[in-house]
């Protein structure tokens, strides 16, 4: 859809009516759930961007004391990448109708995602044990905030993942299942990119 072109139309004119009568009523050649997900991701991106802006605003104040990045964050990052890769392999397998590979990769994607969340909670425990409380320094507060926000979004993704797994059990080879998996994969990759942005931000500031 070219919005500028659309906005120039004159719906009251007879020649425009010829074209309009044949219009199928959709703005994009895109399945509705895919458009819905994209709209949701735009809204989430605004939320996350505003957190990053707030972070950038606050880090220049003199009392900002960056906390140490536990090595486990690197491990968690690798686990999240594995999760995303597994999800994509699952989608590819569904497109090729390889049911066994779909199952393996879907379970692996979910398993890695749970492992990532568990790993993040371990990082929190380590930092709290070392005395890096949220209220002690703004850098600490932002670390907990960003990781929590990302984690909550991933948890939401896991709810959708559970529904997809259930759907797989009911009917492992359907177009609807494949479409659901594609939506899951888009969300997974999106959250991976978000985490990489957050991680880079935390590493370098």
């Amino acid at each position: 859809m070219n919005i500028l072109q659309e906005l120039r139309q004159k719906p009251w004119m007879a020649d425009q009516a010829v074209l309009d009568n044949a219009h199928d009523g959709t703005a994009y050649v895109l399945a509705k759930p895919k458009l819905g997900l994209r709209v949701l991701l735009i809204s989430i991106t605004v939320v996350l961007s505003l957190f990053v802006i707030a972070y950038s605003d606050r880090m220049f104040v003199s009392d900002w004391h960056p906390l140490p990045e536990p090595w486990m964050l690197w491990l968690n990052t690798a686990v999240l990448i594995f999760s995303s890769v597994a999800m994509q392999r699952g989608v590819n397998a569904a497109r090729e109708r390889q049911i066994a590979a779909v199952k393996t990769n879907m379970l692996a994607a979910g398993g890695f995602a749970f492992a990532f969340l568990f790993g993040q909670s371990m990082v929190w425990q380590q930092l709290i044990a070392l005395g890096f409380f949220a209220a002690a320094n703004p850098a600490n507060a932002f670390f907990y905030l960003l990781t929590a926000v990302h984690g909550v979004h991933l948890l939401g993704g896991l709810v959708a993942w559970v529904r997809v797994v259930k759907r797989f059990k009911q009917a492992p080879d359907t177009v609807r299942l494949r479409e659901s998996m594609e939506l899951c994969a888009t969300y997974w990759h999106y959250l991976l990119i978000v985490w990489l942005v957050f991680f880079i931000l935390l590493l370098f500031t």
């Binding site: 659309e6 139309q9 719906p11 009568n21 044949a22 219009h23 009523g25 959709t26 949701l40």
Partner: peptide, 24 residues
């Protein structure tokens, strides 16, 4: 609201009936 908003936007963009362009 976000849940509702996804519906409103997607319905307007993708679920109009035949002949209903945006400018109609």
């Amino acid at each position: 609201f976000t849940m509702g908003g996804l519906n409103y936007v997607t319905t307007v963009l993708q679920a109009r009936t035949r002949g209903l362009t945006l400018m109609r």
